[in-house]
Design a protein around this nucleic acid. Structure first.
Lengths: 261, 261
DNA sequence: GCTGCCGTATCATATTATGATACTAGCAAT
DNA sequence: ATTGCTAGTATCATAATATGATACGGCAGC
């Protein structure tokens, strides 16, 4: 069977874990799947997939097209996000300030949180020119390739910082995505000095991103406020003059509650 | 055991269904729960809850505070929303137009979809004065109490419309929420004539909502575009003059793909 | 210092999930 | 049309898996 890696046995329910794998099989490239496709992507046999998918379906977690018989995510998925957003105290704390910032700068404003070695977008306030994926919450991106991730990293103790830069994953999103860890280290070092991080062409061509960390009471960040603008209309200089002051002000105005580690 | 209601047996995985119940136990009022609380809310015994919650935890679907031992939703929940948003073709179709509308009217703009007898918010573009819950996607509300729901209902065949008004659930959100089905019928009738629906004080006091249906190729709607403004700054008259034209234009500009029923 | 609650761990049992197989429908190519 | 393939659905005997009762230990309130 080999689902679990270690010896955790009696308090592990394999069927549940498999069902979750089915949910995880959906992403931006796989928005709708037939039974066998689903089985293949989740790494399960046809029988198991059949039973689990049916269960998910009749529990309201999977929509099933009556004619194509293909499965797709249901509204339950977005309702879980609603529960998440309530559970995360940063959301309520930051919302009004992010909205204010978005009006001040007139450009796309985001908030992202560190999640393992990635960052996940939790708030997105799009401007008229936003790229589509940039308007959706829940996107996960390796921390090292984003200004948000670098801004957050910059607040960690040097030891951790160094380890992260050396080991955390990177991925190429554009031909100009920085994969060189030496250069990433340089960017993070700069963020340490300045208190914010700025990047260009990392995720999308002609996109400039600026991010400022949201500091915990103990000085570490686990989230960042971030603006994204087009390099057609902006230069990094102008971003630093016209956006960064508001950005820092916003980020500094948010104090998350202390949380156990 | 009694989880399932009918005779669907061999292709039903009870453990998975129970695990899903745990996820569903979280909502705006229950953002973080101890094991026994979770067990109570999900209607499961302590042992089952222990095993299922541990499985969810080690699969990354539940965060566990190391000191309080309380569980809360993880980032996985919001990533599912990301997958959902990609899977729903209406999101990509409508995004640019909704953003445009939000700049035209300068007020909160939403898109919601019919989900059973409720509507669910799938897009939210908040304005500076938005109520917090009004900035979060994934909220589910009985269709009959919202202008969106009524606007959608107004596009259905009279038979279905009548049945829905008679049987679908309602719920009191403010002292002024309309619970009288006769008056709801009147509102829907008005929406049939005008092509949009307007309401006041239904969900929040001093809130005016206007919604226009997004019509499928066959003339039925399963979604609506919606604006929400404060009655301190607006009258319904002014809303009809200054918002409705843009709103209708936006809604009419969105044509969802035909989908099997 | 005692009591009760809550989270954690263990274990023998049979209920439950398993996955191989057979059946059926739709589609493509011949 | 006929055949053959692929993909979804249904069935079933088997044993592996989930079960839930119980016991342990820590912590908080009394």
């Amino acid at each position: 069977m080999e689902i679990r890696t270690e010896k955790q046995d009696t308090l592990f329910v394999a069927s549940l874990a498999k069902g979750l794998k089915l949910l995880r099989a959906f992403d931006e490239g796989h928005t709708e799947m037939a039974l066998s496709e689903l089985a293949a992507r989740a790494g399960l046999d046809r029988s198991a997939t059949q039973r689990l998918a049916n269960t998910l379906h009749q529990q309201g977690f999977l929509e099933k097209d009556p004619v194509t018989r293909r499965f797709r995510p249901s509204h339950a998925w977005i309702e879980l996000a609603y529960a998440y957003l309530w559970s995360d105290p940063l959301i309520a704390l930051s919302s009004p300030k992010l909205i204010e910032l978005s009006h001040q700068v007139g450009e796309t404003v985001n908030m992202s949180e560190l999640s393992g070695m990635d960052i996940v977008y939790v708030t997105r306030l799009p401007s008229p020119r936003s790229h589509f994926a940039a308007t959706l919450i829940g996107r996960r991106i390796p921390a090292l390739v984003t200004s948000s991730g670098r801004a957050i990293l910059a607040t960690l103790p040097e030891e951790e910082r160094r380890a992260a830069i050396a080991n955390w994953p990177v991925r190429q999103y554009t031909p100009l995505t920085t994969l060189d860890r030496g250069r990433i280290a340089g960017e993070v070092a700069e963020a340490v000095e300045r208190g914010y991080s700025i990047s260009k062409n990392e995720l999308i061509l002609n996109e400039i991103g600026v991010a400022a960390p949201i500091l915990d009471p103990d000085g570490r960040a686990s989230a960042a406020v971030h603006c994204s603008v087009s390099a057609f209309h902006w230069t990094t200089d102008r971003v630093e003059r016209e956006i960064v002051p508001y950005l820092l002000d916003t980020a500094n105005g948010i104090t998350p509650p202390r949380r156990h580690r």
